[in-house]
Write a protein that binds this DNA or RNA. Sequence first.
DNA 1: CTGTTAGCGCGTTCAA
DNA 2: TTGAACGCGCTAACAG
Lengths: 327, 327
Amino acid sequence: MVTITDIAASLGVTPSTVSRALAGSSRVKESTRLAVEKRAAEMGYERNVVASNLRKGRSNMVGIVVPRIHREFFSNVIGGAESVLNQAGYNVIICQTMESLDAEIKALKALRNYRVAAVFLSHAIECKNGSHVREVLGNDLPLVQFDRVFPDLPGAKIVGANCEGAFTATKHLISQGYKRIGTIAGFMTSQAYVERLAGYRLALESAGMTFDPSIVFEDSIVRETGYEACKKALEAGCDALYSTGAFSALGAMDALKEKGIRVPEDFGIVATSNESFTSLMSPSLSTLGQQPFEMGQAAARAFLEGRTNTEVIPMELHIRQSSNRNK
Amino acid sequence: MVTITDIAASLGVTPSTVSRALAGSSRVKESTRLAVEKRAAEMGYERNVVASNLRKGRSNMVGIVVPRIHREFFSNVIGGAESVLNQAGYNVIICQTMESLDAEIKALKALRNYRVAAVFLSHAIECKNGSHVREVLGNDLPLVQFDRVFPDLPGAKIVGANCEGAFTATKHLISQGYKRIGTIAGFMTSQAYVERLAGYRLALESAGMTFDPSIVFEDSIVRETGYEACKKALEAGCDALYSTGAFSALGAMDALKEKGIRVPEDFGIVATSNESFTSLMSPSLSTLGQQPFEMGQAAARAFLEGRTNTEVIPMELHIRQSSNRNK
DNA sequence: CTGTTAGCGCGTTCAA
DNA sequence: TTGAACGCGCTAACAG
């Protein structure tokens, strides 16, 4: 492994000069800078990032902490972030918390210890607030929260446009002529679901329709609960559902199929989460996509540009068969 | 940040002793070791891994290089590897190549530069052999290849049981009473597809059925080509298909639905790749799953245990509606 | 514009 | 069993 000392010796200058030259410092003569660069290339020099990081007390790595890497949403965020960070000369070190608070703390400590340039974080479900983050990371280490964010923590936040998205989705159902639109709303302990319910309500009211709590189904958003909720919605005279989860919408489809109700002719569905299966099923499911890849890119850009604001990533409405009466 | 020097000072010993004590060296008196450990804990000491890595010339990070992080298969491999490595005190740094050879070389160089403890690698599609890997990594850095491997490279290899898997899948179709079973085989430029075709053939022949090249459809394995292949298979009198890809099987389902052919009553399908959508569609698609999470765990264990053999991860047959005539 | 000096924090000689 | 000394490779402060 060739070092700056080797280059310096072969050029008759000191390592400092080589270091400055390679760092692109202005305090170095143009000609020597070129000479150094040339020789470095000839000798196949590569800066030892470990030594550099030790000296600078900072590394060119960004740590990303997620509950589980292999969830479609998170792997897309990571992919998006990596693609932008890599362009900017950063590498990505990832940790998964498995939804455990202890694991999250452990991960943050490890990242701080690596002197990472920044931490991108989506909290474990066990976390009730961000106090542990502050304690571990202090105030100097840039933090970018995404999706599952705590407002009490400083730094950039990247979130989906839950309210606007739900508004758009519900409006779309209204525009398709559905008259009594219920919602599979999720649990109101999650901020995201609260916002989506608000968007749903806003859309109804702005269209002169009444918000009816009896067709708001608060429950978990898995296939089985979606199935049950849809049966209740039918009894309550609904002809459409906005589901905050894709799997619950799948359950709703099960119920409709069972009862022989035609989709989208007699019943319309739109769901949040553009899971890959939604475009593949039949009838295909209209969704409100969260754009995780874009969220990852946005997180990376927020860090690179030193921004600390909250960025809202719009959701994308994918109109598919389950809500499209026009053709 | 407290250092070993701080601990040494507060204990009236030298940093060397503290370093030895914390490293668990036997050349330290038991009593002083305990004293050091106690004081270290009191002072909240954490070893500076960057300094440690520089001194040792090796880090406790493992680099994972994949074509794209957000592909379901790869994100599961990464998740599996991380969960095992994390237990063993390693952290994971990931790079995506976007299927580009240049990016793969760049990633490997970066990882070598970080002095990672090992590299886990699944090659970019642009790579035709492993010469570039040898050149960049040398022979000292442990390499674990997975899924897309080159036999000419040394070190551990983790691969799916392609031949056995295809054999099992085809046998299953035979056992369900299908009489003329074709295959959507993929391109024979990929070793994995060659092996699967061999397994398919073996199953037919071991059941006394003849291998008929006219119902082997070599092409890409996307939805459209699957659709076309299935139509040809029907013309050729097939009553079942083993598809080496899940999306091509989806296309085949499209063709069957279009022609009003009942699945599984009149036609059976099994596909390799247990993509999440396969269990959700209707009829649900029988698949041969590659177990990527287990492959990641196996890669991690191979590295941790210093093995350099080739490990074959069995595929799992998920019998679903598309091939199950029994009920 | 360049050289000198001085570490970043740790781990490993060699002596004692 | 411990201490002293050194250096991993790089960068930054200070001279000149």
